[in-house]
Design a protein around this nucleic acid. Structure first.
Length: 469
RNA sequence: GCUCCCAUCGUCUAGUGGCCUAGGACAUUAGCUUCUCAGGCUAAAAACAGGGGUUCGAAUCCCCUUGGGAGCACCA
């Protein structure tokens, strides 16, 4: 049984884009293998905990249609799914490790640790724990415990050992144990560190594939050591490439919008974002770029993912989102736009108007936030001062008179009359239409004018013209 | 600094020893369509990091150099 998971920490505003990517791959792999996808909240860092972050992360996941089979709010047979609710477990296992000689108590103070680190840095050595408490006698340990000296529990990393990690997309990687520090497993506040908790939980939750970002690759040997110490079978490891900024550094919020819901707020479609994300480090065997989940599930294989960290290109995402919008059914698009403006802009747009304008903007917008750029003038009369852009306002009266005469208010008719008028006045069609466009829409860029005027209605158009002249 | 991962157009990638004068997509440029902007269509420019091997033959295999990334916490 394939069981995958993501383990986000509620320490930010929202789900990170990189986590969304990881979540999607985990979700895909579980789906593809008819397995289960699990969400576990890793909230063991009490200092960095952000209230509300957990809810936000879970809701964002759902908005992207990434549904999980087990998780803190949906339950499951391997709960609780919040590490802060599993505290007693970790301590028990940490003590078991001590029992087995794979871990030890460390009573070193923060100050001493800092000093050791400083000294080592000064000596140009890798800053790491010097192992002072490693050889404490049983008596000394008991003495300290009785006195109530604060302590942590550290992993006793064996010396001169080759640790083999098998990664699904990279193959076998060999680490030297001498490069691993005696990692803290249980903090002095009684909370486990990531390394301890992740191994215990993944084991207890029967996770079969640990699919996570590459940043975890170098701590994997520690995890392997833990599995071995407990005598637990190793899961499959799979380290995904890390998404990069355009400048190739790790995707960060200073250089790119990194919160997953930001893309929703901008009016990107979840399917488009996910489709684009699927193309990060992976490509469709037939080189298709646009495909839905069902198709992806058929051809996706985690082994085909590349190891190079791809740059996330918002421009290509925009293009793809535009493609999605263009292939969406009009009625569906209408409700999506309505919903988008309701949810993210607190606007209740007229359903009728949106429906009428869909055809005019479908090929023009790349994301829903563009809709307002194009269509605001349908809903609100443009501010008069914006019409100061107008150079040819002297023709407004002629245009007004001509339009007023039209009884059959249709796009073709308006078009014909305007072309004829331009000829009569002796100006180019472009000139005349631009003047009219500015008057009607308040902008130099707009949907097709004649059709827009039909939607607005004759009275409103004349009104806008009269306000100028 | 140390350890690990990696290296094809600006970007995402195809390519697993001969189908490669390296293919596709985004972006860019030009043309056509046209009332603006889009969209559509057509075309152009654009890459195997460098050096050694192996081989009849290398983008593809090996080594070195260079370059990039990640990790080295009582953070995850």
């Amino acid at each position: 049984m394939v069981r995958t998971r993501i383990a986000p920490s509620p320490t930010g505003e929202d789900l990170h884009l990189g986590n969304l990517y990881t979540a999607y791959i985990n979700y895909l792999w579980a789906k593809k293998n008819r397995g289960k996808f699990i969400v576990r909240i890793e909230d063991t860092d009490r200092q960095r905990l952000v209230p509300g972050a957990e809810e936000k992360i879970l809701s964002t996941l759902k908005k992207f249609n990434i549904f999980y089979d087990e998780g803190p709010d949906v339950g499951g047979n391997f709960g609780p799914y919040r590490q802060s609710e599993r505290l007693s477990l970790y301590k028990k296992y940490a003590l078991e490790l001590i029992e087995k000689g794979a871990a030890y108590y460390c009573f070193c103070s923060k100050e001493r640790l800092d000093e050791v680190r400083k000294k080592m840095t000064a000596e140009k050595k890798i800053p790491r724990y010097d192992g002072q408490c490693r050889h404490l006698s049983k008596k000394e340990v008991e003495e300290n415990l009785r006195k109530g000296t604060p302590y942590v529990i550290r992993l006793k990393v064996p010396e001169n050992q080759k640790i083999k990690v098998y990664d699904l997309i990279r193959g076998e990687i060999i680490f030297d144990s001498n490069n691993s520090d005696d990692q803290v497993l249980l903090k002095s506040d009684g909370y486990p560190t990531y390394h301890l908790a992740v191994v215990i939980d993944d084991y207890l939750m029967r996770i079969s594939h640990i699919i996570r970002a590459e940043e975890w690759l170098s701590s994997t040997p520690k995890h392997v050591l833990l599995y071995q110490a407990f005598g637990w079978p190793l899961p499959m490891f799979c380290h995904l490439p890390i998404l990069r900024n355009p400048d190739r550094s790790k995707l960060s919020k200073r250089k790119n919008p990194v919160w997953a819901s930001w893309y929703l707020e901008q009016g990107f479609l979840p399917e488009a974002v996910l489709n684009y994300l699927a193309l990060m480090g992976w490509s469709h065997p037939e080189q298709k770029e646009i495909f839905d989940l069902d198709e992806l599930l058929k051809v996706f294989d985690i082994k085909d993912i590349q190891t190079v960290g791809p740059a996330f290109d918002p421009v290509k995402l925009e293009w793809m989102n535009g493609e999605y919008i263009r292939k969406t059914q009009n009625s569906k698009l209408k409700s999506q736009i309505l919903k988008y403006y309701q949810e993210y802009h607190k606007k209740n747009l007229s359903e009728e108007l949106v429906e009428k304008t869909i055809l005019l903007i479908k090929e023009r917008i790349k994301k829903f936030s563009d809709y307002w750029e194009y269509c605001q003038f349908f809903f609100e009369r443009p501010a008069v001062q914006r019409l100061s852009l107008l150079k040819d306002s002297l023709y407004i009266k002629d245009i007004y008179q001509e339009l007023k005469k039209i009884t059959d208010w249709k796009a073709e008719v308006i078009g014909e009359r305007m072309v004829r008028l331009a000829k009569k006045i002796g100006i180019s069609n472009s000139q005349l239409f631009m003047t009219l466009r500015l008057t009607i829409t308040g902008k130099k860029i707009s949907p097709p004018l004649n059709e827009s005027m039909v939607i607005l209605g004759k009275d409103e158009c004349l009104k806008r013209l009269s306000l100028i002249s």
